[in-house]
Computed example of a mutant assay.
Amino acid sequence: MAEDETGQDPIGQDVRLTSLDQRLKAAADAEKVRTGTVQREPGKGYSQGSRVLTELIAGPAGGALIGWLLDGWLGTSPWLLLVLMVLGIAVAFRNIMRISSQRAE
C-alpha cells in the first residue's frame, strides 16, 4: 500500500501507532503489577503452605483438647492429654508429608 508524506496509510490505521498502543498497554499492565494495584491469585505453593500451617496447628491442638476433655471425664490426668497430643502430632506430620508429595503445577 502506498503511504502519504506523513508516513500513514491513507486507508487503514498506522502500524506504528498500533504497535505503540500495544507497548503502552503492556507497560501500564506491568506498572500495575509492580505497584500492587492489581491483585494476583495466590499460587499453589501459597495454598500448600497454608494447608501445612493448618495441619501443624490443628493436629496437636485437637489431640490435646480431646485428651484434656477425656482426662477430666475419666480422671486419668495427664496421660490421655499426652498420648492424644503425640498422636495429633504424628497425624499432622503424616498429612504434611502427603501434602508435600503432591506435584506442583
Rank of each mutant, 00 (worst) to 15 (best):
L17T: 11
S50T: 04
L65V: 07
D4P: 04
G7A: 14
D9W: 14
Q13N: 12
L81D: 01
G12C: 07
A64C: 12
Q22F: 03
R40T: 14
S100I: 05
G63K: 03
I99Q: 10
A30P: 05
A61M: 12
S77W: 06
A27S: 08
A27P: 02
G45Q: 07
G67L: 04
L17I: 06
G63Y: 03
L20N: 05
L69I: 10
A90C: 06
T35E: 08
N95V: 00
R51L: 09
G59W: 03
V38G: 00
L20G: 01
P10G: 12
P60F: 07
R34W: 08
A64K: 02
G43P: 01
K25R: 13
L84P: 02
D29M: 10
S100N: 14
E55M: 11
L17D: 15
D14W: 08
T54F: 13
A2T: 14
I89F: 10
L20K: 10
A26K: 11
V15A: 15
R103L: 07
R34L: 14
S47A: 09
K25T: 13
I11A: 10
E3L: 15
K44C: 01
A2R: 13
V38R: 13
I57E: 01
W73P: 00
G88M: 04
I11M: 10
L56M: 13
G36A: 07
G75P: 02
D14F: 05
I96C: 08
T6W: 12
V15D: 12
Q8M: 09
D9S: 13
V86R: 00
D71K: 00
N95R: 14
K32I: 00
S50Q: 15
L81Q: 00
I89V: 15
G88E: 05
A104H: 03
G75W: 01
F93A: 10
E5V: 08
T35D: 12
I89S: 02
S77R: 04
I99M: 06
R34F: 13
G67K: 06
Q13W: 09
V33A: 14
T35N: 12
D9L: 13
R103S: 11
Q39N: 11
V15E: 14
L24P: 02
L69A: 15
E105M: 09
L65T: 13
A64H: 04
R40L: 15
E105R: 11
A64L: 15
P78W: 00
A26I: 06
D14P: 06
K25G: 03
S100W: 06
A28N: 11
R103I: 08
S100V: 06
T54K: 06
E55W: 09
E105Y: 07
L74H: 03
A28C: 05
L74A: 08
S50P: 01
V83D: 02
V38K: 13
Q22P: 00
R40A: 13
L87F: 13
N95C: 03
E31D: 11
E31N: 11
M97F: 11
D4A: 09
G75C: 02
R51N: 07
L65R: 02
